[in-house]
């Protein structure tokens, strides 16, 4: 059951990224209007983080070739995310972390 939810998370994550990036890439003015709505922007960010957590947990589960998801998959996924995000933050000049402060 949980594995099914995680599979849905992968599909949702890819769909959300592709949709948002297509909107921003092809019609920047629509993105400007749409993504500056604060409640939408905040809830989308929370949603994408949840969906990504599911995705990375699922990917780690499949990486270890296991059929059931375990807590250690989630923990490894979280660590990989933190390290990877720190790397890309550093590479692109800390855009997310500087936006928090």
């Amino acid at each position: 059951m949980l594995v099914r939810v995680l599979n849905v998370c992968v599909v949702l994550f890819i769909c959300m990224i592709v949709t948002a990036f297509s909107i921003a890439g092809f019609t920047p003015e629509v993105a400007e209007n749409l993504f500056t709505i604060s409640w939408l922007s905040v809830s989308m960010r929370i949603l994408i983080f949840m969906v990504w957590t599911g995705t990375v947990t699922n990917a780690v589960r499949k990486y270890y070739k296991e059929n059931q998801v375990r807590l250690v998959h989630f923990r490894i996924g979280l660590l990989v995310t933190i390290v990877g995000l720190l790397f890309f933050e550093w590479k692109n000049g800390w855009p997310i972390i500087s936006s928090i402060f």
């Binding site: 992968v10 994550f13 959300m16 990224i17 948002a20 990036f21 921003a24 890439g25 920047p28 993105a31 400007e32 993504f35 500056t36 922007s41 989308m44 960010r45 994408i48 983080f49 990504w52 995705t55 990375v56 990917a59 780690v60 499949k62 990486y63 996924g77 990989v80 995310t81 990877g84 995000l85 790397f87 890309f88 933050e89 692109n92 855009p95 997310i96 936006s99």
Partner: peptide
């Protein structure tokens, strides 16, 4: 699976940038 995770992390970052400030989003860089 490594590819999905490796591509997902920058996707996540650029998604957050897009929602934080749409004018700062750069499709090519993403």
């Amino acid at each position: 699976w490594g590819a999905i995770v490796g591509g997902g992390i920058p996707s996540l970052q650029h998604f957050a940038i897009l929602l934080e400030d749409p004018s700062a989003f750069d499709m090519k860089k993403a």
